[in-house]
């Protein structure tokens, strides 16, 4: 897959400490970068632009899901076939992006998830978080039909026509962008796979949410799985049909 078909989307909220280095590292791998500056009050946007990224400045903070949908819209409007999302805090190794693209081609996947817990140097997590991850992994396995391992990973590659669906509708609530989008994609018949990926220490910034937000997410995830509410995507054939007609 040509890297000119691929764009890397980095949602960033007050990540001035790390965003420039992350942009440079991703560009060094040969990918164009778009940073969605999610209402930052620091110099995130300016630093990202200086490092060579296109910057989408959101005037208000929409949250990770909102920022990502803006990035997906950018990707679709500018003719990219594949988008890779990655965090701005330097936890994701840009070299892993090639593994995601390789898996996408070899396994004919629409959505490839970087599994932070399968590779060497896997991310250490607390006991409570591990429990929550297991619950989510179980729910994701039921939706996808095979183990995913890391349903809330922020390192993912998305291919058209699923990319078009993400640009049309994407969950905005905390962590909905990862788990809910995964479940909705699998339910619409898109192929979802995961590959082991290395994770590094956060290079700067703060966690995006506290315990209350995490609990609210678990409750929402329960509703998404059991009651089948939330985001819905059209199957690939329907998206292609709509594109031809449009």
């Amino acid at each position: 897959m040509a890297t000119s078909d691929v764009v890397v989307i980095i949602p960033a909220h007050n990540e001035a400490a790390t965003v420039a280095e992350v942009v440079k590292a991703v560009r060094a791998e040969g990918f164009p970068v778009v940073v969605v500056d999610d209402g930052s009050t620091d110099a995130t946007g300016e630093l990202a632009e200086s490092a060579g990224a296109a910057v989408l400045p959101l005037v208000v903070n929409l949250g990770v899901g909102g920022a990502l949908r803006c990035g997906f819209r950018y990707a679709v409007e500018n003719g990219y076939r594949v988008a890779i999302q990655c965090d701005a805090d330097g936890q994701h190794d840009p070299k892993s992006m090639h593994d995601l693209l390789r898996a996408m081609e070899e396994q004919h996947a629409d959505l490839v998830i970087g599994n932070r817990f399968a590779a060497e140097g896997a991310m250490p997590i607390s006991r409570s978080r591990r429990f929550a991850m297991r619950v989510l992994a179980g729910a994701a396995r039921r939706a996808v039909g095979h183990p995913i391992g890391d349903a809330t990973s922020g390192l993912r590659a998305i291919k058209s026509p699923l990319l078009q669906e993400f640009a049309r509708e994407y969950p905005a609530q905390y962590l909905g962008d990862t788990f809910e989008a995964l479940v909705a994609s699998a339910r619409a018949g898109y192929r979802v796979v995961s590959v082991p990926t290395t994770i590094r220490e956060r290079q700067g910034g703060e966690r995006s949410a506290g315990t209350a937000a995490s609990l609210a997410f678990l409750a929402r995830a329960f509703l998404v799985v059991t009651l089948r509410i939330g985001t819905r995507y059209r199957p690939a054939a329907a998206v292609d049909g709509a594109r031809v007609e449009g």
Partner: peptide, 16 residues
């Protein structure tokens, strides 16, 4: 609000 904010950001990037 979400859609308008996104559209504004996309337009601003295009203008730049």
């Amino acid at each position: 609000v979400r859609t308008v904010t996104e559209s504004l950001a996309l337009s601003e990037e295009r203008i730049r």
